[in-house]
Simulated assay, not measured.
Amino acid sequence: MSERLRFWLALAGVPLWLAYPFALWFGPLAARQVHCAGREFTGAFDECFNDYLPIAEMAAFPLTLLLLYPFLRFAFALYVPMNRPEGWRWRLAGSSGGADCFPSLQLLTGVAMLWAILHVAALPLAGSTAPFWIYWMAWLVWLALGLRASWPLADGREP
């Protein structure tokens, strides 16, 4: 992978990260609409009719902004080349890159991939949930590319 491609892939994580609160808020609503389509309220509360207030989901908006810098550090460390060129481009990666942090950064990436898979598993296959399927698949692709870019090879070459 070229350095320029790595840099742009690291930056591509930013819109994915900033879109997370919207996916967290609207994804389950779309899944609920698919699951509860055509049902009418019978007077009893169930999974389709309840008095649930999304308090925790509201915290996702400020938390996403608060955790933007640590996410940027993660994204740039994941994609930084082993032989880091000097300059401003990779300063967010810190002093060590993905290959230097083996296996902790790769394990964290694997956990993030499981997190995305769990979100996808909660979505039904329907037209109204297609944007969320695309969003979570984009996360999986981004994380898999980062895992590949940060995996150290035995002979010390770049992946």
Rank of each mutant, 00 (worst) to 15 (best):
F61I: 14
L114T: 06
I55H: 09
A99H: 07
A130C: 01
L63T: 01
W115N: 04
E47G: 06
L65N: 05
L123S: 06
L65T: 03
L143V: 02
R84I: 07
P103V: 05
T109N: 13
E57Y: 08
L53A: 12
Y52W: 13
L107N: 01
L108G: 15
A138N: 08
P81Y: 06
M82A: 15
D100G: 08
W90D: 04
A59Q: 05
P103N: 00
E57S: 11
L125M: 11
A116L: 01
S104D: 07
A130S: 10
F49P: 05
S104M: 09
A138S: 15
Q106M: 11
R89D: 04
A59V: 12
L125D: 08
A59G: 05
L143R: 02
L140C: 06
P81I: 07
L65E: 03
F61L: 14
E47V: 10
R84Q: 12
N83P: 03
H119W: 09
R84V: 05
R91L: 10
V120D: 01
W115R: 01
M82E: 13
D51L: 15
A93I: 06
D51S: 14
L53P: 00
L63N: 07
A112L: 15
A116Q: 01
F76E: 03
A77Y: 02
M82Q: 15
S96L: 11
A99D: 05
G97M: 03
S95C: 03
S95R: 13
R91A: 11
A112K: 02
G97H: 04
S95Y: 05
E86R: 11
F102H: 14
L140A: 09
A56R: 12
V120M: 13
M137S: 12
M58V: 09
F74Q: 01
N50H: 14
A112V: 01
S96M: 09
L123Q: 05
L78N: 01
E86K: 11
L114K: 03
L114M: 14
W115D: 01
